[in-house]
Amino acid sequence: MNFLAHLYLSNNNSNIMIGNFIADHIRGNNFENYSKEIQQGIFLHREIDTFTDTHPIVRKSKRRLHQRYRHYDGVIIDIFYDFFLAKNWSNYSEIPLNIYTKGIYSFFDSIKLELPKKSQDFINYMIEYNILYNYQFEEGIAKVLNGMNQRTKGKSKMNLAIEDLKQLKTELEEDFTLFFEDLCKFTDKKLKELNSNTNN
């Protein structure tokens, strides 16, 4: 899953959210300077990624994509699933997406200097281009895909994936809806386990 989903799945716990957000910028076990709850967020992020990568519905979504993307198909599906989460946000949260994302931006902007440099850079980018809110629009997804393609120096061809999204929107949205129900249940269970381990 991509950034919006990881933040949503943090269950409105600010420290879990921090860990979940910075996890991709933390190598190995280099998280000992963070609080226990932030460490839980890092663990949760990794558990979510493993669950997602091995889920049969996600694998089905990857197979729907054009073969040209090769091993980048997982990254593309992560982005597409955030599109469907943002597009259907009112099904998952009582807080409107524009209000939720503004709160996220404000929170992370206030603490960014305590976070890894890569996280700081993404926070600035996220706020400048209103990335999380714009996930709900095909134009926003196209911009993200173009940026990812540039980062891979054109090797990923991810800029072309917006056409896959347009052609396969119905099938991919069905995949997302079924998968996200499973993921929410998994995350709730994992959060309880992490809390239990901390309290023991």
Rank of each mutant, 00 (worst) to 15 (best):
N2L: 05
F3I: 02
F3E: 01
L7E: 00
L7Q: 00
Y8M: 00
S10C: 00
N11D: 00
I16K: 00
M17Y: 00
M17T: 00
I18P: 00
N20W: 02
D24F: 06
I26Q: 04
R27C: 07
G28R: 12
N29Q: 11
F31L: 11
F31Q: 07
F31A: 06
Y34Q: 09
Y34H: 05
Q39H: 11
Q40N: 09
I42W: 01
F43S: 13
H45G: 14
R46G: 06
I48T: 03
I48G: 01
D49R: 12
D53W: 08
D53T: 15
H55D: 12
H55R: 14
P56F: 10
P56A: 05
V58I: 10
R59W: 08
R59I: 08
K60S: 09
S61I: 02
R64K: 15
L65Q: 04
H66P: 05
H71F: 15
H71E: 13
D73I: 09
I79W: 02
I79N: 07
Y81I: 12
F84Q: 04
A86C: 11
A86Q: 06
S90E: 12
N91E: 08
N91P: 10
N91A: 14
Y92L: 00
I95F: 01
I99D: 02
Y100E: 00
K102W: 01
G103L: 00
I104Y: 00
Y105L: 02
S106C: 09
S110F: 11
S110T: 03
I111Y: 02
E114T: 06
K117C: 04
S119A: 09
Q120M: 15
I123S: 01
N124W: 07
E128A: 15
E128M: 15
N130F: 03
Y135H: 08
F137N: 08
E138G: 03
E139M: 11
G140L: 06
I141G: 02
A142M: 12
A142K: 09
K143E: 07
K143H: 12
V144K: 02
V144Y: 11
L145I: 07
L145D: 07
G147Q: 13
N149Q: 15
T152W: 13
T152E: 11
K153F: 10
K153T: 11
K153P: 06
K153G: 05
G154M: 12
S156T: 05
S156V: 07
K157G: 03
K157L: 10
L160Y: 07
E163Q: 13
D164H: 06
D164R: 14
D164I: 05
K166S: 07
Q167V: 03
T170E: 10
E171D: 14
E171T: 15
L172T: 03
E174D: 10
L178K: 09
F180L: 03
F180P: 01
C184L: 14
K185W: 11
K185M: 15
K185Q: 12
K189A: 12
K189P: 08
N195V: 04
N195I: 05
N199D: 06
N200P: 10
N200T: 05
